[in-house]
């Protein structure tokens, strides 16, 4: 039996210890926001946080997170309570197909926690493990800068209750 904390709750599982964390989270704990992309740690679609660090969970055996803290996209923010990085993603119109974006956001959140004022180069270095086939990279970069600024100033970047425009 392997126990760990998942989005703040203690959970346990009896799956074989070499099962990749991604599949445990998706199929046993039914949190499907984290995606399967490559199975080799090459694309970042499966990115979660383990003890605050961005990790590729398609190659991380579940035993490796025993007694640790795992956070998924579902633990970062909810549709009615968006994280500032999620708000920035909407403000900059980042997602297209959206499949890689949970992983992109998890990487970006980890980046900003470690480096609150990243340069373009810092962002390139940190985010280059996350592939986006729709090519949303320049918007991701802008969104990360916006989220960094907003974190300092406390500005809300997107509030679903206050969608602007459309004056009749």
């Amino acid at each position: 039996m392997i126990s760990f904390r998942l989005n703040g709750e203690t959970v346990s599982t009896d799956v074989p210890s070499d099962t990749p964390l991604l599949w445990v989270i998706r199929e046993h704990f039914q949190l499907t926001g984290s995606k399967f992309g490559c199975g080799k740690g090459l694309c970042g679609a499966c990115t979660m946080h383990f003890n605050g660090n961005a990790i590729r969970t398609c190659v991380m055996p579940v035993a490796a997170v025993a007694d640790g803290e795992v956070t998924t996209i579902e633990g970062v923010g909810q549709p009615d309570q968006l994280h500032i990085v999620q708000q920035a993603w909407i403000k900059h119109n980042v997602p297209q197909c959206g499949y890689c974006q949970s992983g992109q956001i998890m990487s970006a959140v980890a980046l900003l926690e470690q480096n609150p004022n990243p340069s373009d180069e810092d962002i390139d270095n940190f985010m280059s493990g996350n592939i986006c086939r729709c090519g949303t990279y320049s918007r991701i970069k802008q969104a990360i800068h916006s989220a960094a600024d907003a974190k300092h100033s406390g500005v809300v970047l997107f509030d679903p209750q206050q969608v602007q425009g459309g004056a009749a």
Binding site: T72, G77, I90, K91, P95
Partner: peptide, 20 residues
């Protein structure tokens, strides 16, 4: 009010940034 304007986020945006 909407055609030709960028005054609304994509209707699929919230779902796609929250993993839902």
């Amino acid at each position: 009010r909407w055609i030709g304007k960028s005054n609304q986020p994509r209707v699929d945006a919230i779902a796609k940034v929250t993993g839902t």
